[in-house]
Write a protein that binds this DNA or RNA. Structure first.
Lengths: 148, 148
DNA sequence: CTAAGTGCAAATCGTTTGCACGATT
DNA sequence: AATCGTGCAAACGATTTGCACTTAG
């Protein structure tokens, strides 16, 4: 790839160092994917691919997948399943929230972790289960779609 | 299909009436799928297909999908996403529970709805959101896999 | 008899993989 | 220069669809 690597709108502090430190290489593709994840928030691999294309044509979708897998493994991004299709990725630093997905209108509401504190505590105390908050999605019906 | 329809090990009371009442036909395939869902609990379409095959060979996988969609629409069955692969189906009457999925060992724990009552209440009061309990899956780490 | 349901095969969607070429260290 | 990373194309698993044939009502 003939594109140079400019200083990124730093999405993750020291992302490049983190890569090198663990023996991975710093490539334009990896930077672009990370930036796309940061910019789009909750985007599918395909959407991330499209976003990346806007800067550098020719980045293959399989590279997107491989890169997302790597970044997730390194703890920089995480994914959640909203609905039935492809998973959506977001920065790990932005993971501490829960998604409410309306089964009728499809609207996705993001809420802070406060509402689920009691759940987390209950699962911990009663089942010894450590909840992965960022991965939690609650399906149901939103205010507008509920019968009054 | 040359198989007669015997009285089923009734999985859903009046399932056949419910179908006819809404203008749908009662077929051996639909009965078999419903029985398979009831018997297997948390089974994927493919597993349900395999179970159905044991009684009647030649039932196509696409029929399984179409039937599950219908039964779900009629409120007889529901599905949940445990992990990344195919969704799992179970009887709607058996829906009032939550799944805890361990990201490390993959173990699935089923717990009663009590632990999430506070969550349901909070989402309702604070966001007007009506939670679909049967569809809720919590990812995290189970007691055995947590570092002590 | 007639519309609804099914089987079959092909199409589609999301994702993964093998391999040769190119780029980072 | 030696690997690691990428692009490309093909393989894959899960699900959907078009269409002709079958069957419940």
């Amino acid at each position: 790839m003939d594109r140079e690597v400019p200083s990124p709108s730093v999405a993750v502090r020291g992302w490049d160092e983190q890569l090198r430190a663990r023996g991975y290489r710093v490539t334009p593709q990896r930077q672009l994917v990370l930036e796309a994840v940061a910019r789009l928030d909750h985007a599918t691999p395909e959407e991330i691919g499209a976003q990346v294309q806007q800067t550098a044509r020719g980045v293959n979708i399989s590279t997107i997948y491989r890169t997302l897998e790597l970044l997730e493994q390194l703890g920089m991004v995480t994914h959640t399943h909203l609905g039935h299709g492809a998973p959506t990725y977001h920065l790990a630093s932005h993971a501490d929230h829960v998604h409410l997905v309306c089964r009728d209108c499809g609207r996705i509401t993001e809420i802070g972790p406060d509402a689920i504190r009691p759940l987390i505590t209950a699962l911990d105390e009663r089942h010894g289960f450590e909840t992965d908050v960022g991965h939690l999605t609650v399906f149901g019906r939103c205010q507008e779609c509920r019968p009054r």
